[in-house]
Design a protein around this nucleic acid. Structure first.
Lengths: 150, 150
DNA sequence: GAGGCTATTGAGACTGTGTCTCACTCGTGG
DNA sequence: CCACGAGTGAGACACAGTCTCAATAGCCTC
């Protein structure tokens, strides 16, 4: 254990102190399978007796988002969640079954954005694309349970 | 006045009662220039002495969103806002200057979504695209003030 | 136009998320 | 090993959104 996660590395490189709470949170986040919320981290931290305060969790998430080490999602139900990810511009496909996410590249989206800019006259500074559906694994298990069940 | 707004019509057609509070809110929403939040409506309702309760505002917004008469946006800062709009699938360009929004049609987005589905193996059920920038009017006034100012 | 059924409402308690303050702690550079 | 200041935990706070429940008022029928 203790292997420096990418998050710890990112913090270090950005000149932030490598404190206990931050390392604890980094490994907690690295353990998350899908997306996670601040509240979930609070619960997880308490479960593991990390002794990390709520405020610290929010503050750390804020820093990490700024560094691009995690990204915030707006789920369809209005909740906020985070996913660990690469610090380059991209978008996410979120599985509504298991919460797992995949990163996708811009692909043709830039063209769409440019076209919209031309049509509306807006200067587009920022865009966000979020896709929701079922991942291959959940599709498979859904099909399986449908066959078995009713 | 009292001219039935599209919102009132939509409520009626869906079988909802045309109550005083709902009509008051409908006209309040019709008056909004750009996007608006639940909190703003609460303030506006109080300012006009409409006597509409907070709970009713939230409930009505929920109904209207269900009917597709308004749509919820997730602003970049994490806040929620609503915009009145046509009840067909579309996306929004939001002006970060004045808050005004324009609706845009899918255009090539469907192609992008399909391609992502193919590449990731997900079954995409839902997608959301939000664009943020400056509208032509704000661009103009920004340029003007830049010329005048520094 | 009156009456009754029931959807809708307002007030306010409640829950949960996120922010802020402040005294204390502990990384880090020297 | 020390000093400094970034970082921290506890808990108060601000705010969004939900829920309950008794009272009200649309709408339909007659």
């Amino acid at each position: 254990m203790g292997a420096a996660t990418p998050i710890v590395t990112a913090l270090d490189r950005a000149g932030y102190r490598l404190t206990g709470p931050r390392q604890a949170l980094a490994s907690l986040i690295a353990d998350q399978e899908g997306h996670f919320s601040a509240a979930e981290l609070v619960v997880a931290a308490r479960a593991r007796r990390l002794g990390v305060g709520r405020a610290t969790i929010f503050r750390t998430l804020e820093v990490l988002e700024e560094l691009g080490a995690i990204e915030r999602l707006d789920l369809p139900n209005g909740e906020h969640a985070y996913v660990g990810c690469e610090p380059v511009h991209h978008h996410h496909v979120v599985c509504s079954g298991c919460g797992r996410t995949s990163e996708i590249q811009d692909a043709d989206l830039l063209r769409v954005v440019r076209r919209v800019a031309r049509q509306t006259g807006y200067r587009i500074d920022e865009h966000r694309l979020e896709l929701f559906g079922l991942c291959p694994a959940c599709l498979t298990s859904q099909a399986a349970s449908k066959r078995a069940g009713a």
